[in-house]
Design a protein around this nucleic acid. Structure first.
Lengths: 328, 328
DNA sequence: TTGAAAGCGCTAACAT
DNA sequence: ATGTTAGCGCTTTCAA
């Protein structure tokens, strides 16, 4: 391996000078710079990132924590975050927890040992204070998880308000028996949605049915399974706020097979405004969560922080948009 | 920051000894080990990965190159590869090229500078020899891209044979005018599929229609757009081999809106066996590509190579499975 | 504008 | 079983 020292020796300058041309410092004469550049090229020199990172105490790498990438929302999130990071010269490493607390904690340990410069936390199983204590003196920012903003930065959609809007829409149509599906009901985000769901009922002086709050429904297959289970038995359900467009798609396909007319007998609302909502029949009414906008804002902010251009923790709340298609 | 030297000083041993307990070496007395462990805990010591990586000349990080993660196949691929790597103590960094050659080259440069230990190449725009020359002396393995296996390891499904099987199935049904959709037709993988498509025609002494080879059709929206364009004008098309289940889903939704009966008037076959193929109406006949099996094999092999337990380049070919549902 | 020199935190060969 | 020591490749302060 050819090192900076080799290049220095060969081009007859010092290591410092070579380092300066590598890092594009000023105060190097054009003559010297060209001479060094030529030798670098000739000997196929590439700087060793490991050494630079060690010396400069940063990795140019950001971790993102999600439950599982094979999911309409997280997949898009990673897409935009990763692209935004790349544009700024950062790598992104994806950590899937598969909803395992210890896996999540492992990522915090890696943060402490400098495996990456910061964490974007898009899904968490741990309480805010515990996370804060695990990530002390390090950079972490939450994305669409419901945290106070007291300990670390938070960028999120107002899940409660958004879910309330969608639920109210169904209630205003005169529906009486709504179901609610969650991916992982104990998470703060799902709790916020549930709160919005309940609040919408309260505001109209209506009751919701506890046994129609379904947990652990996260993908197409889960939607199908749930549908097959409830559509035969609980025909009184006339509306569903489902946790994602994939779940909604599964529910719709099951409903169709069970001869339930949508939206005449049953309304279904999804989340995420994923393109899948365009190909079901009927198309899925959904909630757009501004993934791209949030991703870009968040990454810009985070990188400013890494570069030391920002200080105090901020909380930025976005408003979700209800998109009314044909399933409601 | 508390370093290994601090711990050594405080616990009254040498740096080497501390290093040994950190790395769980044998030849440390239980007494010493416990003493050091206690001090480490008390002072909240965490080893600095940057220094270790630098010293040991590895990152414990593997890059994966894909066009874009928001895609049914690549999303699942990343899911399984990333999980398999994690199990072996490796991180994965996702590089999306968005089909840009220079972005792909950038990743090879990063490999040369040791930003990660190896690349898993799941999508490439570059010829095999160029890749080989860019990744000299480093580890790279291709996944489901059609390379010779001469320069680097290759794990892949036999795309040609698999596509031929599916095409033959349609031809045997008596269909006469088949269309073919590709994501990016110039890629070796898509070329292999096209070859299989053509071969199936040849074997039966039939011709295919060149203008029904469609390029740059990669997601749900593209499927819808293409469907809306061709279903009105080219009613002679009676079968489509589409590049992915998402494209197939888009096509089906467009066909339904255009009052085309599937599979009576038109057969559609997807790729990837993504759950989306279960929620369209009719369900999508598709080709399973054994993502999980390949991912695990590939990662195991790659990590053996990183650890120096393997040498010569290998090529492992898997057979895809045609799954006949209701869209064909 | 350039060079000398110290040192980042850790590992491992060698010596004891 | 433990310590001594050299050094990984680079950046950066300081001096010239």
């Amino acid at each position: 391996m050819v090192t900076i020292y080799d290049i220095a020796r060969i081009s007859g300058v010092s290591k410092s000078t070579v380092s300066r041309v590598v890092s594009n410092h000023p105060h190097v004469s054009t003559e010297t710079r060209n001479k060094v550049l030529k030798v670098m090229q000739e000997y196929n020199y590439v700087p060793n990132s490991l050494a630079r990172q060690f010396r400069q105490k940063h990795t140019k790498c950001i971790a993102i924590i999600i439950p599982n990438i094979d999911h309409p929302y997280f997949c898009q999130l990673v897409r935009y975050i990763s692209a935004a990071c790349h544009k700024k010269g950062f790598k992104t490493v994806v950590h899937q927890t598969f909803l395992n607390k210890n896996t999540e904690k492992g990522v915090y340990t890696q943060l402490q040992t400098n495996e990456f410069d910061a964490i974007i936390l898009a899904s968490s199983l741990l309480p805010e204070v515990e996370i804060a204590s695990c990530t002390k003196n390090k950079l972490i920012v939450a994305c669409n998880e419901v945290f106070s903003g007291e300990y670390f930065d938070v960028f999120c959609v107002d899940e409660e308000e958004t879910t309330m809007k969608a639920t109210t829409f169904l209630l205003n149509k005169g529906l009486s028996t709504l179901a609610f599906c969650a991916d992982n009901i104990t998470s703060p985000l799902q709790q916020a949605r549930l709160k919005g769901f309940i609040l919408a009922h309260n505001k109209k002086g209506l009751n919701y049915t506890k046994k129609f709050i379904f947990n652990k429904v996260s993908n197409i297959e889960d939607g199908i399974t749930l549908g097959d289970k409830i559509f035969k038995v609980h025909t009184e359900i006339d509306g569903i706020i489902s946790g994602s467009d994939f779940v909604a798609a599964g529910l719709i396909s099951s409903a169709v097979r069970n001869n339930i007319e949508i939206p005449k007998q049953l309304s279904i609302i999804g989340f995420d405004n994923h393109p899948i909502s365009l190909i079901t029949n009927p198309q899925i009414s959904t909630i757009s969560n501004k993934i791209q906008e949030i991703s870009i804002d968040l990454v810009n902010h985070l990188i400013n922080k890494i570069d030391g251009r920002e200080r105090a923790p901020i909380k930025k709340v976005y408003s979700g948009e209800f998109i009314n298609r044909s399933s409601s």
